[in-house]
Amino acid sequence: MHPLIIFAASNVSYVLLLGTLGMLVLAVGLVAFIVFHQRKVIKYQQQLQVMEEQQQQILLNASIRWQEEERQRIAADLHDDAGPLLATARLYLNDNLVHQDISTQLQSINNAKNIIDDTIQLIRNISHSLMPPTLKNFGLESAVNDLFQKISGSGAINANCRFHDYRERLQPQKELLLFRVTQELVNNVLKHSNASFIHITQNINEGNFYIRFHHDGKGINQEDFEKMNKSSIGLGLKNIQSRIKVLDGQIKFEKDNSQTFFKVTIEIPLQKAANA
């Protein structure tokens, strides 16, 4: 065979082997990349799931703690206020009352009646704190208006609210959750922000129900909120988060465009809010 043909033949084989090897290396590289990438994705998803479970646990604990605190508060109200009142009324209506003169009897009965009236009022207040009648009968707008009138009436802070698109009421359970979130946020503003005004607006946009809070005091941003949600402090904020989660909504803490006021936006999908 001519040496040129031998050279050409071995050259072709060399190119073929090199090309095949190159393609194989590329293919193996691709396969390896996919395998490692998939493993990484799975690991990331597992981590995310663990974090999600931890977050759920924190929210659940917060919710249980909140319930316990609420029960303790009601128990304390009943024990410390209603208990002594009823005990005093009983004293006025003791067995010796029949042996006393008419005027003393009437005086005692009148005192006991007044004390029972006070007790009824006290129990009504406790009942209203559990489920505000305005919310039950007239809806979220009236309940928030009522709350803000009371706050404004105290003179501590200028509070006003405006509902732009509240023609149809949400489901009672959803309204109660939203009202509790509003109460908690307002409570936080009153306790921590040192604000001179708080303003709430409501509107509906692209099938979402929005409530926006503005105040001019000290506030928190989204990063602070998430940090506090993951820590053991900030029970109220965790309750807000768990309620918003039940509503399948979102809450955002930020400064407004002018960077002067703090803004909290609650967004709830209207369809789910109405159906759930």
């Binding site: 190119v15 095949t20 194989l24 590329l26 293919a27 691709l30």
Partner: peptide, 10 residues
């Protein structure tokens, strides 16, 4: 992928 990458040049 392995088969066709290996035989592509061929």
């Amino acid at each position: 992928i392995l088969f066709f990458a290996g035989t592509f040049f061929l």
